[in-house]
Simulated assay, not measured.
Amino acid sequence: MTPTRRAVLVSSLAGLGGCLGSADEVSVECPVPVDADGAARLGFVGDVMLGRNVDERWRDDPTGVWDGMADRLDALDGLFLNLECCVSARGDPRPGRTFHFRAHPSWAVPALDSAGTVFASLANNHVLDFGPRALTDTLTHLEDAGVPTAGAGPDRASAFEPAHLAVGGLDVAVVAVTDQSPSYAARADAAGAAYAPLRPSDRLTRHWVGGALARARERDPDLLVVSLHWGPNWETAPSETQQSFARWLVDRGADVVHGHSAHVIQGVETYRGRPIVYDAGDFVDDYLVKDGLHNDRSFLFELVVTDGTLSALELVPVEITNSRVTPADDVAARWLRDRMRSLSAPFGTSVERDGAGLRIPLGDC
């Protein structure tokens, strides 16, 4: 996708003062406006599952899975998502698992490209559904398509390696980790996901996640994103442990915390001027809809970076119908607005009406 917006973001990671943290924290700067020729707009969504019925339906029409969202996606500088399936035609279903998700590369790769995908997190509990051969295929197909990934690899070190990409005039680093399915964890000599308990007090977490953050900061990125596949399904609020871990990440340099896994939206917190999306919900899949939870409804979260400042998070209501994502109708959009206001209220988040969606101002440390 050709970038439609460009901006220069002053790095929040250089030790130049601003908001102060404790001695073991990275100094997190208040954003400093600089001259720029526009704004960058980066999209963040939750789980994208292109297997099973989605795979069967859209093999002959890769762009159809995005339905009426195509123009909105095309207006982004790039889309960040959690890819909750393998992209492969090989491998055998993992024994002992209830669900196995795999999409054929012939259509899944063009579909991801047509959505403007610039990053796919593979740190999740489906990356090994068809074994290490399918994981290898997934990595190869996405690399060949120019889609950076993080969160899985042929061994533990590579799974925890940050991704680096250029999007919308920004140098972006992404760390992707999960606390789901320990049996899928990459090991020193075995393929898998970047697994850690995701508790600030855990030694493994401090070593592997803290190390990944440090390596991401070495290249002095304009924006550091942490993508988290975490927590139990169907929970509408993050646990205290999740909240403390998300803030721990920001204290160590994260500019955006991008959560997913619960299959339902959770609230948004702004901490030290940075957005914490505790769970972005599901963006496209074929899952059954749980009564009262509306896991078929979520948002496209658009991070706006204007004149070097993280200025806003704009929430565009969407819903899943017939294995595709579409703009939410009036009823669904109203439900989503009310739900997000309610879920974000405990964090004191300022949530404003913005057309059919919502807007969360950012930038105040």
Rank of each mutant, 00 (worst) to 15 (best):
R57G: 04
V54A: 08
G91P: 09
W66N: 08
R59H: 15
D55T: 01
V54I: 01
L76W: 02
A70H: 09
R52I: 00
W66R: 10
D67K: 06
L79K: 05
D77W: 10
S88E: 09
C86P: 01
D77I: 12
V54M: 10
D61Q: 14
L81T: 05
N53H: 12
E84A: 13
L79S: 07
C85W: 02
D77T: 11
P62L: 04
G51C: 06
M49P: 00
S88N: 10
L50V: 06
W66Y: 15
D92H: 09
V87C: 03
A89W: 01
V54W: 09
D74C: 05
D74F: 07
A70G: 04
R90P: 00
L81Q: 08
R72F: 01
A75E: 11
M69Q: 13
D71T: 15
A75L: 02
L76M: 09
G91S: 08
M69S: 06
G51H: 09
D74P: 07
M69D: 03
L73N: 03
D92S: 13
G68F: 00
L76G: 10
G51L: 01
R59P: 02
W58C: 08
G91A: 03
G78R: 07
D61V: 05
E56H: 10
L73E: 02
D71N: 08
D71A: 15
D60F: 01
S88L: 06
D67R: 12
G91M: 06
A75I: 10
E56L: 14
R72Q: 12
E84G: 07
G64K: 12
W66M: 14
G78V: 09
V65A: 07
A70F: 01
A70Y: 00
D92A: 13
D67I: 01
G51S: 07
L81P: 00
W66Q: 07
M49L: 13
R52N: 12
G51V: 00
M69T: 13
L76V: 13
N82K: 09
P62K: 06
R57T: 09
D67L: 02
D74A: 15
R52A: 09
F80C: 10
G51Q: 07
R90I: 00
G78Y: 10
G64R: 14
E84R: 10
D92T: 14
R72G: 11
V87F: 04
R52E: 11
D77E: 14
F80L: 15
D55Q: 07
L81N: 05
T63P: 06
C85M: 07
D61W: 03
G51T: 00
L50P: 06
C86S: 11
L83W: 05
D60T: 10
L83D: 09
L50M: 14
A70D: 04
M69P: 02
E84Y: 13
D67Y: 04
D61K: 05
E84S: 12
R57P: 09
